[in-house]
Write a protein that binds this DNA or RNA. Structure first.
Lengths: 360, 360
DNA sequence: CTGTTAGCGCCTTCAC
DNA sequence: GTGAAGGCGCTAACAG
């Protein structure tokens, strides 16, 4: 009832924060002047002294523009949505961290949505755009590419793909999956490996395909032949990695001396299988994985990886998206080239072929 | 350039989404009626047929209330803020997932903030409340308890502590750190261990203290004495776990046969040290850690853990907070009791004391 | 150059 | 039971 500044009932506090009219009154200017100064409107010419007074009064009153009012007027929410497959996956977490930093720097907030049990991907886009009214979408999921992309385009709303590409869309920010994978193979080749296996991701996904091609590139550079028997589909999970590793162990003869795994989880699963099978890493089998992360240090032995700029990818995606929203111009695809091998203890030269016992 | 269905200027599309007046007109009723029906206003009596028509028309027009307009009017943002120490930590990720689910179920969105380099915790609260105008705060950080708590209280805004307690605040949702820790020790005791070490967290943090006390409880239950030499401070990182394990290995004589680690990362670091030192797990040293997570499966050997309802904790926190915001009533602290040992391969009975070689 | 004014879309009394 | 009207705080167009 009486909900003015000093209330006693203790119910929900109606924050009596300063509004633009308070600032205008206290500074002896019009609301418009305050609005323009606060937004840093370049085209607004005003005496320095007035500008200063406004700024000071605003600070003193702790004035913060009400985003709802501003949003109502401008039909902008100053927020971005980011859609990821899962939250508890370090890869996506780091993309988010980067995106959030970029958003915060430009005054946007970030709404995070993950693919939920029973909620279709396209429904998430809809919800973010139609209900939350985000100004733009950062999309790191694309379960069914064609469906998702047409849904996205139908929204007629700014968006950017991160860590994915799709045909017909040139708004993307990706890392160099292919180049990094090639580098992984190069690393193994440099150590002397000639029989190199690959645990690949899900067959039709962008990242998997790129990493597989990078693997092939690496072989080719080294003058090695691609042998489909040395490649097993592992998906992106530990279990998948384990199953694929088992398969390789059984059917790839002779056994590879090194493995390039498409993800850290894949490698982790594979390493479990190797341990059980009594295959020593790195003595009998070298292992390298794409993307770096804390779990690489935790594995036994610590895992050699290809480090990629995941945070930067998120940062660039948000930056590009905001640029597009505010500038209106088109932006085109961006590939972050930088990749780097992080040597730990899971890679080593292949063991010398031991002398044939019969020859003793 | 022309990359969209129907657009010529190519500038930002002003989404002409349906507004309440459109629905009212199309359904032949007043805006007020639509508003009441859409919000499910109980005290609004209306013919079923009218209600149905409104609902249908709204669905057909794909009407979504504009949150800015609604927020301006109601001075509510229908959003919650959650503040965590780091995003790329599975523990916090799972709390967030739970909170997000609860928020979504009740029509709230969740703004995630993490402690950023160079941004004080209290500044994050301020920003969320004053600038983003969240309706409530879920706080999982509390670096400096007294400072943070008074800042929180000064905000005069609904908040709930999650995974933390603080004196003078009874709005919290926590798991049973102490009971779960006791259970971990019980598990080791049941296997026959009598000399059990503890790698503890940062000394003055809520969770660390509880887990240490749970450890002590467990010892006491088993009639064992607490020996400060068997406890080493490990913080929450791998490096800390490694350092503490080294310390224990050097200074605790005789060496413990089992370790209870305060976190998964701590255990991971410790296991690395044990491996280097040639101490076999679980033959020579059993290891168990508080909280469960994917990395437990990845370690060598897979790590036995105490599983705790992290997601539920986030869910309950958001639910309680929303209840408070909407209902206005006080809510009191909540402890989620359920904990469970997940047996993997890092715990086993202590090796029999081998017969003294001299006695042969 | 600065101030006045007219809504943005919604919710909520208050008449009918 | 239903509708008309005012205003939440802000910005952008237009006067002066």
């Amino acid at each position: 009832m009486n909900d003015s500044p000093k209330r006693d009932a203790g119910l929900k506090s109606k924050r009596p924060s300063a509004k633009i009219s308070d600032v205008a009154k206290a500074a002896g200017v019009s609301q418009a002047a305050v609005s323009r100064v606060m937004r840093g409107d370049e085209s607004f010419v005003v005496r320095d002294e007035t500008r200063k007074r406004i700024t000071e009064v605003a600070a003193e009153l702790n004035y913060q523009p009400n985003p709802a009012a501003r949003g109502l007027r401008t039909s902008r929410s100053q927020s971005l949505g980011i859609v990821v497959p899962e939250l508890d996956n370090p890869v996506h977490a780091r993309i988010i961290i980067g995106a959030e930093r970029a958003a915060a720097e430009r005054g946007y907030s970030l709404l995070i949505a993950h693919r939920d049990a029973g909620m279709v991907e396209t429904a998430i886009y809809d919800r973010l755009v139609q209900r939350n009214r985000v100004d733009g979408l950062i999309v790191a999921t694309l379960a069914d590419e064609s469906v998702a992309v047409s849904a996205l385009q139908a929204l007629d709303h700014p968006f950017v793909l991160v860590n994915r590409k799709a045909s017909g869309v040139n708004h993307h920010v990706v890392i160099n999956d292919r180049g990094g994978s090639r580098k992984a193979v190069e690393h193994l080749v440099a150590l002397g490996h000639r029989r190199i296996g690959h645990l690949s991701g899900a067959p039709h996904r962008y990242n998997s395909k790129c990493r597989l091609r990078g693997y092939q590139d690496g072989l080719k550079d080294a003058g090695l032949f691609y042998d489909a028997n040395l490649v097993a589909e592992a998906g992106y999970t530990m279990e998948g990695g384990a199953a694929a590793m088992r398969q390789l162990l059984q059917s790839a003869q002779p056994r590879p001396t090194a493995i390039f795994a498409a993800t850290l989880f894949t490698a982790a699963g594979a390493m479990g299988v190797l341990r059980e099978a009594g295959v020593k890493i790195p003595e009998e089998m070298s292992m390298i994985a794409f993307n770096d992360g804390a779990i690489a240090d935790v594995l036994a032995p610590p895992l050699t990886t290809v480090r990629t700029p995941l945070e930067t990818m998120g940062y660039q995606a948000a930056t590009a998206l905001i640029g597009h929203i505010e500038g209106g111009g088109e932006f085109s695809g961006q590939v972050l080239e930088e990749t780097e091998i992080v040597e730990r203890q899971s890679t080593a030269p292949p063991r010398q072929r031991r002398p044939d016992p019969a020859s003793c």
